[in-house]
Amino acid sequence: MTARAAAADGRPTAAVASPYLGYRVALWVYAAVFYLILYGPLVMIAVLSFNDSEISGFPFRGFSLRWYGTVFTSPQLIASLGNSFAVGALAALAATSMALLLALGFRHAFRAKSLVLNLILIPIVIPGITGGIVLLLSFGYLGVRPSLWTTVLIGHINWVLPFAFLTLYPRLHGFDRTLEEAAMDLGARPWTIFTHIVFPLIRPGVVATLLFSFSLSFDEFIRTIFLTGFDRTIPVQFWTMLVNVVAPEITAMAVIIILIPAFTALVGFAYLRQARRGERSAAP
């Protein structure tokens, strides 16, 4: 395998590499074990979610979709799923909009740039648990009751904003500005340049950022648990069930919680690839 790859490369590595065949085999075995441990437990949960048994766990007593039925007929679980979608969509929209403006600003050289960058990174750098607690303290003192549309949404936007910026910034940083300059030379106004040239060029990157942001918000737990009121997001609902009574539909919930953000992120990756390809083909 290795020799074949090297030969296809046309580079004389095969002769050198062969004495280390043992290392290479060991590396492959190691990688196999690594990915098995990484994905094995997730696959196991997926299998258990189809288990036709009142007690969550093995032995497997037959294939059944009943636990998914339980999840999708429980008003409480449907509501928390809806809450997560709504908060995720709003947080993604708000964070991506601010991140887009930030990234546009970062194309300029300005004095406070590194200060602003450090400010943006603070929500990533601060431990998650304190990210929730600082808001709990402030809003608690001000008498703002914790709810989905105040405390939770604000906490999520805080959390998502740095990632949105870190995804968008490279899209705007590395992009070919020739078209933009031509339009400027021809007298186009900044807003026109943005809507007609800059935005269409970075659109895949913006879509990817929206999707990643949604995914991050959907998965958020540690800040939300301190900020949530009566309306729970799905990870908080999952946690509450886990801590109180472990119901048999917990594995089906786990699968749903894994699949939605993972799928969203996967689509995000596809857009990011498209964005990168666009940048490469536009480069002189």
Partner: peptide, 16 residues
């Protein structure tokens, strides 16, 4: 580049 840097970064900076 288009825009004024301080205006562009203002919303996120104010938010944070």
């Amino acid at each position: 580049p288009i825009g004024r840097p301080y205006l562009l970064v203002a919303p996120a900076v104010a938010w944070l």
